[in-house]
Design a protein around this nucleic acid. Structure first.
Lengths: 213, 213
DNA sequence: GTCTATAGTAGGATAGAC
DNA sequence: GTCTATCCTACTATAGAC
């Protein structure tokens, strides 16, 4: 067999891209290293030369995805107008890693991918929280919010939302999800000390006419 | 080899107990199904008759642990005195699943186990949140806290704390952990609308003399 | 240093005899 | 329900070509 020598970065990127495609198309656990090799026409030794385990390859794929997603969100923020609250709304409604472009979620929401999913969330949180924090900071300056710890508050909100509403972590029942979603706006408003109602847009069925029991 | 026939529940319990012991003693990943079989003197087919994967066996072990831990916390609450805040303090400082008894969590605190780890946290959260919620409710009646959604608020707090401070999910740096821990009391106080300082006991170095910059 | 090829080990998982 | 035999795949080892 003939040899194709590539620059290390290029080869590495090839492998990550191929693996990402396969992981997304199928199931991480069911995708074999052999599959990845075959789809690139390279030898086993090559892949293990760059990634010392399947797990390490997964890590690189995750990093790739998070990087792409974060850049997209970054550009969304820069393109958005209005006060901090309006920008946050843009970011939240449009720029979720889940909604973005891929069917990744479908794939991640399978038992075999729980680990990948969690790590993706953690990596995404770490990269995205600063984005939110900047908007929270801006909101404080505008008098909309009040907090001394914009970053930590952002992290806390993201963590809570992701952990409690993401189907990839636990098979929450629809009732549980509904219950949590409805409580969310108030929880966020409390954390940011924002006007009641500021985050009402988050609620799924905008219960305008509901009465407190 | 002679065959020993046992009642299904008994056999199952045997396997879970043996696996738990081995997982705790060594490393989940390094413990082989062979090890579990050997320690019981049974065949591989038998273990797979009860658990269709190693992962499922781990799940059972974890459920075992969560159940035990939750009961322990329950009894702690019942034995504690004072107002809701004092009871909460007892619960938080004494009754963490992590501190309790096992090193199995140490094992879960590795990248490869992120999925399992998260599921443990989710399972623990679902079982323990009601415990906290009851205390929050009590605190509301005592005028210490103010919330219409004690359960959701408890879930949110537990999720945030677990996700952001648990090493099993992401290898957070010590600085990051410190930063988050210090912000935590205020975040919780905001969520519960509690007196500032109520949860200061959570901070690792109780910074009594720190000034806000 | 980068890549191919191949043979082999270990351990998770399954089929089918009993 | 239990056991035995076998399979599948992540991973290692090695030998060698560019």
């Amino acid at each position: 067999m003939s040899r194709t020598v590539k620059k290390p970065e290029e080869r590495r990127a090839d492998i990550v891209r191929a693996a990402r495609r396969l992981f997304q198309a199928g199931d991480y656990e069911q995708t074999t290293m052999q599959d990845v090799m075959n789809s690139l026409g390279i030898a086993k030794g090559t892949i293990y030369y760059y990634f010392s385990s399947k797990e390490e390859l997964l890590e690189a794929v995750i990093e790739d995805m998070v990087e792409e997603s974060t850049q997209h969100m970054q550009s969304l923020v820069e393109a958005s107008h209005g006060n901090a609250l309006e920008k946050l709304r843009t970011l939240i409604t449009a720029g979720n890693i889940a909604d973005e472009n891929d069917e990744i979620l479908e794939q991640l929401h399978r038992p075999g991918n729980a680990g990948m999913h969690t790590r993706l969330l953690a990596a995404a949180l770490q990269k995205q929280a600063p984005l939110y924090a900047r908007l929270v900071q801006q909101g404080c300056e505008e008098g909309l919010f009040h907090t001394d710890t914009p970053l930590e508050t952002s992290e806390f909100i993201l963590a809570g939302v992701q952990f409690l509403t993401d189907q990839g972590i636990h098979a929450w029942t629809p009732e549980t999800l509904m219950r949590r979603s409805q409580a969310l706006p108030t929880l966020i408003e409390n954390l940011l000390k924002a006007q009641p109602g500021s985050f009402q847009f988050l609620s799924p069925d905008t219960p305008e006419e509901r009465e407190t029991k």
